[in-house]
């Protein structure tokens, strides 16, 4: 390119003309580059973009290959757990649900769900633990334990490729509104809301990181920074800490409401669990 420009310039000089060298090909902007990348096609819907499109090609390679994606070692573990009998009732997940591939298809879209028992929203993790304690008589798993991360990822994996489509009407409506309020509420010493980064500045840099739109269609994700998979609530805690706000607990009402709102925000994008992010 350089040589061609130079060639044209010298040619024009030779003719004794006034030269104004303008670049012949205009550079694409980052947004245009992302939109033009064929790999991103299935990860963008309208103006919504999954976190995938903001990742480097190396990170995307990891996600696209199920062997290179380390999250699958946790999923393998969960697959074993699926048919392992535990607890007083002498049952495993498989004794009621049989095949995980069939039984859990589309389940990712059902949670967080309104629970008439506690009159609150419950996340998938809460549901898994409730099944374990009530139906199986087994011990509940901790939110961020290997077993829970694996099982949540295994269940959501069955919806991979399906568009996110969550129910926000009926009894879930007030909780959805609360989640929306949380999202737009400024908090912490930096006085920033989720929306300030992920709506107003998506695609821009925050120090060396590109801010994504904050779509949660890939959770639980394998995060390179954590060197292991993590739940979306762990990500919320990280975000809250970064704006110097006191984070809530994993599984708290606030975060579950926020999760519902964010799933609605991501609706239309395909499920990518287990995604790889940096």
């Amino acid at each position: 390119m350089k040589y061609r420009t130079l060639y044209i310039c010298t040619a024009l000089l030779g003719f004794g003309l006034v030269v104004s060298c303008t670049p012949i090909v205009e550079e694409m902007t980052e947004v245009e580059k992302r939109a033009a990348d064929p790999r991103n096609k299935t990860h963008m819907v309208g103006d919504k973009a999954s976190g995938y499109v903001y990742m480097t090609s190396q990170t995307r390679d990891m996600q696209d290959d199920d062997i290179a994606n380390p999250a699958f070692t946790w999923i393998d573990l969960a697959e074993e757990k699926w048919s392992k009998v535990e607890g007083k009732a002498g049952k495993s997940c498989a004794s009621c649900h049989q095949d995980v591939n069939k039984a859990m298809k589309g389940v990712a879209n059902k949670y967080p769900q309104y629970d008439p028992e506690s009159k609150k929203l419950i996340a998938l993790q809460v549901k898994i633990n409730r099944e374990r304690t009530k139906r199986m008589g087994a011990k509940p798993w901790k939110w961020e334990s290997d077993q829970m991360l694996g099982m949540a990822a295994l269940v959501k994996l069955q919806s991979r490729g399906m568009p996110v489509n969550v129910k926000i009407d009926g009894p879930a409506k007030p909780f959805f509104e609360k989640g929306k309020e949380f999202y737009n509420q400024r908090r912490g010493l930096l006085d920033m809301a989720c929306a300030n980064c992920h709506v107003d500045n998506a695609g821009n840099m925050a120090r060396s990181n590109v801010l994504s739109q904050g779509m949660i269609n890939g959770f639980p994700v394998y995060r390179l920074k954590w060197q292991k998979p993590g739940s979306v609530h762990r990500r919320f805690i990280g975000c809250n800490k970064q704006v110097r706000a006191t984070p809530y607990k994993r599984g708290s009402e606030e975060y579950t409401n926020l999760e519902l709102f964010l799933m609605w925000r991501a609706s239309g994008l395909n499920w990518e669990t287990p995604a790889v992010r940096n």
Partner: peptide, 8 residues
């Protein structure tokens, strides 16, 4: 139960 290696 420990996680297992993956080989293809």
């Amino acid at each position: 139960m420990a996680r297992k290696p993956r080989v293809k």
